[in-house]
Simulated scan of single mutants.
Amino acid sequence: MDSQSSCVVVTGFGPFRQHLVNSSWEAVKELSKLGLGRDMEVELRILQLPVDYREVKQRVTRIWEDLQPQLVVHVGVDPTAKAIFLEQCGKNWGYGDADIRGFHPERGVCLPDGPEVIASGVSMRAVSRRAVVEGVEVAFSRDAGRYVCDYTYYLSLHHGNGCAALVHVPPLSPSLPASLLGKALQVIIQEMLEELRKPGLNAWFTGNSAFAIPDRGNQLGDCSFREN
């Protein structure tokens, strides 16, 4: 991680399946209106990603190569969720569901030579405990679902030396409008940036360009697979 970087990139996804309005992008747009807060001396950039494996692969690579952000936060929608989930790790295999173009990766693998699991250097469990947002629960998750969100996250963790995050938001509803989700993202990202500023994390990122955790997990977030 470049300690001099002052850019944070936040992405949301476009329409797919029955989600003609994707709450992830609506939440990111609301975040853009709010900004990251006056105390956060970072530039916020937002980007919409298509629910398209091949296009995502190109765009994630360009984000890290061209912008060199200190953190990238990907936001996706979980159609069944009632809470916001902070995903600790990305998985390399299991991508059998087709994207909006009917494509899925060969053999369902993200990077053929990559580790099975890559964890974020940000403790999502710690962030979920501190990020208090009235009107919506913020929870910790160990399984991002093996679709384009998870695929995007794994690639971003790989390119960003673990300096990435994935947030799953619920669908929009009267009790969970885009304005609330945007405010929640602001609070969550503020806490993530505080995590990155903890002593010792810069050295950790320097030495762990593709940090993989075994199924049993470890102190950074326990990335064991969920029971189905």
Rank of each mutant, 00 (worst) to 15 (best):
K91M: 12
N92P: 00
W93M: 12
G96C: 08
D97F: 10
D97Y: 12
A98M: 11
D99I: 06
D99E: 11
I100R: 13
I100A: 06
I100F: 10
R101M: 11
F103L: 12
H104C: 14
P105W: 09
R107E: 13
R107D: 14
G108C: 03
G108F: 05
G108I: 04
V109R: 08
C110D: 02
D113A: 13
E116D: 15
V117H: 10
S120I: 01
G121D: 02
V122F: 04
S123F: 02
S123A: 06
M124N: 11
M124L: 10
R125Q: 14
R130G: 01
R130T: 09
A131T: 02
A131R: 01
E134M: 04
G135K: 04
G135L: 02
V136D: 01
E137N: 13
V138H: 03
A139G: 02
F140H: 15
S141D: 11
D143P: 10
D143Y: 13
D143I: 07
A144M: 12
A144K: 05
G145E: 03
G145A: 10
G145I: 07
R146V: 09
R146Y: 09
Y147S: 06
V148I: 15
D150Q: 13
Y151L: 09
Y151S: 08
Y151K: 11
T152N: 15
Y153W: 10
Y154A: 10
Y154L: 11
Y154W: 07
L155C: 10
L157H: 01
L157M: 11
H158W: 15
H158K: 13
H158T: 06
H159A: 15
N161E: 00
G162K: 00
G162T: 00
G162L: 00
A164W: 02
A165V: 06
H168N: 13
V169R: 02
V169N: 08
V169A: 07
P170I: 09
P170S: 09
L172I: 09
S175W: 08
P177D: 03
A178I: 06
A178W: 05
G182R: 02
G182H: 04
G182V: 04
K183G: 02
K183A: 13
A184K: 01
A184D: 05
A184H: 04
L185W: 02
I188R: 02
I188Q: 03
I189T: 08
I189R: 05
